[in-house]
Amino acid sequence: MNSELLNYYEAIEQASADMLSAARTGNWDEVVKLEGACVLLISQLKAAANESQLGTTEKQLKTRIMQRILLNDAEIRHLAEPWLEDLNQVMAGKSRMVH
């Protein structure tokens, strides 16, 4: 088994879960910080994936991990929508003031 690659997927999943927890409490600074950690982990995963591959069982586990990450991401986006809409309104108001 190639546990190194799975470790990266699991670390990304944990960061994703942590991001969701932060989003649920409205701690968007923490969400952004954790998103940066995810970017780094994904970069490291890509480099490691160039050197090795997952077996059939590992691929099934990877698929389950990725599904959980996608569910977390969807919920984070849903929680962020009101915040993003507020930001859009603020930015629209500023642009009207400038013109």
Rank of each mutant, 00 (worst) to 15 (best):
E81Y: 09
L20T: 06
K59F: 00
Q60G: 03
K46L: 04
H99L: 02
V31R: 12
R24F: 00
Q44V: 00
E35N: 14
R68G: 01
L40T: 15
E58G: 09
E13F: 07
V90Y: 13
L54F: 03
A23Q: 10
T56M: 11
R24N: 11
A48W: 11
N50D: 07
A23C: 06
M91Y: 13
L87C: 07
Q67L: 10
L6I: 08
D29A: 14
Q67Y: 04
I65Q: 04
Q60V: 01
L40W: 08
C38S: 10
A80D: 03
N2M: 02
L84H: 15
V98G: 03
N7I: 00
H78L: 06
N72G: 09
N50G: 04
V98L: 14
M97F: 10
A11G: 05
K59P: 00
N88A: 13
W28G: 08
N88W: 02
H78T: 13
S3P: 01
A37F: 02
E30H: 11
V90I: 09
E75N: 07
Q14K: 15
M66C: 07
R68W: 00
G36S: 04
L40E: 07
E30A: 11
G93F: 08
A22S: 12
M1I: 05
V31D: 04
L20R: 14
D73A: 05
L20M: 09
D18H: 12
E81R: 15
V39C: 09
A92N: 11
A23W: 09
W28H: 08
A23Y: 01
T63Y: 00
K94H: 12
E75I: 05
Q89F: 03
R77V: 08
L54G: 11
W28M: 07
H78G: 08
R64H: 06
S43H: 15
D86C: 02
M91S: 10
A17Q: 09
E85T: 12
A37M: 11
H78V: 06
D73Q: 14
A80H: 12
L45V: 01
E81Q: 14
L41D: 03
A74R: 15
G36V: 03
V98W: 01
I42D: 09
D29T: 10
A22N: 05
A37N: 10
P82Q: 10
L54E: 03
D29Y: 03
I65C: 03
L41A: 06
P82M: 07
L45I: 01
Q53T: 09
G55T: 07
R96S: 06
V32Y: 04
P82Y: 10
E13I: 00
L71P: 01
E85M: 10
Q60A: 12
A22V: 02
K59E: 08
L34G: 04
H78I: 04
I12Q: 10
N50Q: 13
M19K: 15
W83C: 03
N50V: 02
L71D: 13
N72F: 03
N72S: 08
L84S: 09
I65N: 06
I42M: 12
A47S: 10
M97G: 11
Y8K: 05
K94I: 13
S3G: 00
E75G: 05
K59S: 07
D18L: 08
L79H: 11
M66R: 12
L79M: 06
L5N: 07
L70M: 12
V90E: 09
R77Y: 05
E4M: 05
N7R: 13
I69C: 06
T57C: 01
R68Y: 01
N7T: 06
Q14E: 08
E85Q: 15
L40K: 15
M66L: 14
